[in-house]
Amino acid sequence: MIEQNEIVNTVKFQDVPDAGRRNLLKMAGVGAAALSAASVAGAPAVAQSNNEWDKTFPKSENVNHQKVSFRNRYGITLSGDLYLPKNRADQRLPALAIAGPFGAVKEQSAGLYAQTMAERGYVAVAFDPSYVGESGGEPRSVASPDINTEDFSAAVDYLGLHASVDRDRIGIIGICGFAGMALNAVAVDKRVKAVATTSMYDMSRVMARGYYDALTPEERTQSFKQMSQQRWADAESGTPKLAGGLPETLDGVDNPVIRMYFDYYKTPRGFHARSVNSTTGWTVTNPLSFMNMPLLTYIKEISPRPVLLIAGENAHSRYFSEDAYKAAAEPKELMIIPGVDHVALYDRLDVIPFDKLKSFFDQHLSA
């Protein structure tokens, strides 16, 4: 899904006319899934060979990479890219499980984070969540606050059994929409010693309430009515209807949200053929479970393990990190990157604070 809780940094929410605000709120809430893109319904994409570099970022010569797979507790096989520091000898290293953004695949932002943290001494696995990318699960192009939370713990299962990993030093990084799932996972999975998020937002909140919780009860009810009717249509056809994604060009498109995401997902900067947000859309009924199941109800139970929340100063999603910071218990830290918008933290190596991420995990995943 395109993260609709973001506008390019030259546009402030309060500067958008009332009609435009209503449209943005609808996109961020129920319509959020409709702006996303996904692989067509059917089986997961065929995995690439270990020798074929299929990422949106250059391969590091300081890291070993391999394709891996593991199962979650619902029996779904997840596909991952494992990055290991070269010259690690027989050391057992700290490890990170990484996923996001919501609607992206491991060959995009999560893989960049994993490879970069491996350069800094970590074993890191970037994985495709259930039902998207190269991971299993049918039907395709759906998400679940429960199953996608479980996906993080399944990655921790995998890392804890790896010969190069010290299972007592495992952390999580969640990017964008998967930041909320990451926090939800760490609240219950006490094996995880520290969690960091970038460009975080709470998928259940934004789908249920819209931007700034401005979706009206009437709009929420109407959305449920529409999706309830869509369920009958899907059941009759046997194939869930896809919502549709980003336009193929920006001709005539003035909406700054769409333009910003187009610049990442539909251009060589971030396009990937398996990415939900680069192609054809989530299912129309995708928001249902998110709208009814709050993700961050037990965020305080992450404590006493530390939380680091990172957001761009100009990101329209910034308030999600700020509110999560207020809700979390100590130890916690909120880092705002000056002059940066939401998507910049996907792939811009000049602004993603990898040194901060390293120092945070070095401190809290120490032997």
Results as ranks from 00 to 15, higher is better:
297 T>V: 07
170 I>K: 11
274 R>P: 07
116 T>N: 00
88 R>Y: 08
101 P>G: 10
315 A>G: 01
307 V>N: 13
160 G>P: 10
321 S>R: 10
141 S>V: 09
100 G>W: 07
265 Y>E: 14
68 V>F: 04
187 A>R: 00
113 Y>R: 00
117 M>I: 12
138 E>S: 09
104 A>H: 08
104 A>I: 07
34 A>W: 15
240 P>Y: 06
5 N>G: 14
335 M>V: 13
136 G>S: 06
217 P>T: 08
229 Q>H: 06
71 R>D: 06
244 G>A: 10
222 Q>R: 04
310 I>P: 03
7 I>S: 05
312 G>L: 13
29 G>C: 09
102 F>A: 14
325 Y>M: 08
35 L>R: 08
114 A>M: 08
289 S>C: 04
198 T>D: 09
218 E>R: 13
314 N>C: 13
263 D>G: 15
195 V>Y: 03
347 D>H: 12
277 N>I: 01
303 S>Q: 08
226 Q>E: 12
242 L>T: 05
226 Q>W: 05
159 L>C: 10
160 G>C: 08
289 S>T: 13
272 H>P: 09
104 A>Y: 03
235 A>R: 02
290 F>E: 06
117 M>P: 04
123 V>T: 06
306 P>V: 11
78 L>V: 02
294 P>A: 04
203 M>A: 05
302 I>R: 02
281 G>L: 03
38 A>F: 15
55 K>F: 04
290 F>W: 15
271 F>D: 12
103 G>V: 06
50 N>Q: 02
188 V>N: 07
233 A>S: 03
177 G>V: 01
65 H>R: 09
